[in-house]
Computed example of a mutant assay.
Amino acid sequence: MTAGHALVAGVDEVGRGPLAGPVVAAAVILDWRTIPHGLADSKELAAPRREELFATILASALGVGVGSASAAEIDAINIRQATLLAMRRAVAALPLRPDLVLVDGNDPPLLACSCEAIIQGDGLVCSISAASIVAKVTRDRMMARLATHYPAYGFAGHVGYGTPQHRAAIALHGPCPEHRFSFAPIKSTWQR
C-alpha cells in the first residue's frame, strides 16, 4: 500500500512504436498480500514467463483493466494522444476505482483520481510491472489474431514492429487496415 492510498493501480502501455496494430494499456490493482513472485518489466521476461505471470496476475489481482486505441485512432489523434486514451480506457475498465494511479514514464493521462508518473516505473513498481506484463501479453495475442486475418505480414512474429520482413511485406502487398498510415514508411507512400 502506498501511504494514504488503499487502492493503487499501476498502468503501463505497449505498442507505441510498431507500424501496425493498436497501442494497448493495462491497469492493475495488486492485492498486496499476494504479490506474484518474479514481476518485472515485460521486456525483461521471456514470452513463456510472461504468460505464466499473466495468468497469476489475473488470478490474484484485485482488479485488472485493459484499454486500447486502434491504428485508425492513432492516425486520427497521434500516438501520444492514443496512448493516453488507451491508459484512460484501461483505468475505466477496472472493476474497482483506484485512489491513486502510478503510470510508467513521464506523461500521465488526465484521470478523475490522483495520478503520478514514474520514469522506468515498470522496473521499480510491482503494480506497474504487472500492468506491463498484462499489456504485452494482451497485445501479442491481439497481433497473433490479426495474423490469421492478414497472413502476408507475419504479425505473429514481429507483432507489428518495422522489421525487415515486415517492411518487405508492406512493399510487396501494400498496407492493410491495421497499419498506421501516419507512421513512416507508410505515410510517405499510402493514404488510409
Rank of each mutant, 00 (worst) to 15 (best):
T2F: 13
A3K: 14
L7P: 08
V8A: 09
G15T: 01
R16I: 00
L19H: 06
P22Y: 02
V23I: 13
V23M: 08
A25M: 01
A27Q: 06
H37K: 13
H37Y: 11
L39K: 00
A40F: 02
S42H: 05
S42W: 07
A47L: 14
R50H: 10
E51L: 10
L53E: 03
A59H: 08
S60A: 14
S70Y: 00
A72V: 12
I77K: 08
I77C: 07
I77G: 10
I79L: 02
Q81H: 13
A82N: 05
L85G: 00
A86I: 01
M87H: 04
V91G: 04
L96G: 02
D99T: 09
L102I: 08
D104S: 01
P108S: 09
P108W: 04
P109K: 12
C113A: 11
V125T: 03
V125W: 03
I128P: 01
I133M: 11
V134P: 06
A135S: 05
R139A: 03
M143F: 00
M143H: 09
M143Q: 09
A144Q: 12
R145V: 15
L146M: 14
T148V: 13
H149D: 15
Y153V: 03
A156N: 13
G157P: 00
G160T: 03
T163M: 04
H166T: 07
H166V: 14
R167T: 10
G174E: 00
I186C: 04
